[in-house]
Design a protein around this nucleic acid. Sequence first.
DNA 1: AAACCGGGGCT
DNA 2: AGCCCAGGTTT
Length: 350
Amino acid sequence: MDFSAELVQWYQKNKRALPWRDTANAYVIWLSEIILQQTRVEQGMPYFYRFLEKYPDVISFAAAHEDEILKLWQGLGYYSRGRNMLKTARQVVGQYGGEFPVAYTELIKLKGIGGYTAAAISSFSSDEPRAVVDGNVYRVLARYFGIEEPINSNKGKKLFQQVADEVLDKDHAGLHNQAVMEFGAMLCKPKNPDCAVCPLRNGCYALQHNKVSILPQKLKTVKIRERFFNYFLITDGDTLLMNKRGEEDIWANMYDLPLIETAGYLTPQEIMNMPATAAAFGKNIVMVGASRPKKHILTHQHIHAQFIQIEPAGGEIKYQSGWLRTGIKNLKNMAMPKIIFLFLNNFFNL
DNA sequence: AAACCGGGGCT
DNA sequence: AGCCCAGGTTT
């Protein structure tokens, strides 16, 4: 038996009796699908009943006031779903004569209906062969077929939709779609799936390769640090003060300039007034120039750098670890981050 | 591609 | 505390 047939057989034996199943009424299916977006069945169920009782068809829904919809939606979260539903209901009444669309290409045009919901409504109401891809489908496909592409990358989304379309039973699209999702929700759960009793265990890549717990893969959004580097340009004849960076941070072991990092942006004058500046370079220093802030973008960090030229270069400087005086003619042999090289190259005409 | 939207259950 | 839920819209 193939993938789809196994799932459907499992589904027919184990499915929950849910009030929006066994209906072809696109309005009712739409109501349930919007409510169930990012929402557990148990949480959405009472709302579904309340909405259906108060608005038994799209005509009555479209006639509601937004305040009434939002009040009935209260506690469910993602309140734009309720507002979008009202827009869509009114559009269905105005443009489709109150006949809720069942074609994917029409449904996808409506507010609050994306690819998943359009596929769900069209397949459930008219068996249009469109594969649904939701959180459950990602999980089932990733595990069974061993797909390691992250589900939240553009490449991954395309790939999973493609695989879902390939395994779809096009003659029984609605049944197939419901089966995959129910299977993902009830058996192939995110944590502690019931692999021991799974009808697909023999063909499951993740189970055979001990990868159930790591699939599906998801790209975690790396938070970008905003950092503010205040560099000091201190020349003395044909030399300048440089800094060899340590092992820990970005640009490890490369050269930049003496640096005071701040938590946020400060103007050059504010930097000059900081006690840390006087402590490093002496009390009698004077700012003789400053660059505009420059932004340098790294994968995980945005560096906001500015260059402040100070004088005199006298003996008050307390050399910190890594600082060294270098001949300007040596600069061309020193490895520097691009933002430093660009500045020095421009300043000294290297 | 990432931010934003939300309450609630599970581990 | 972090992940996930029958995702979609906006920037």
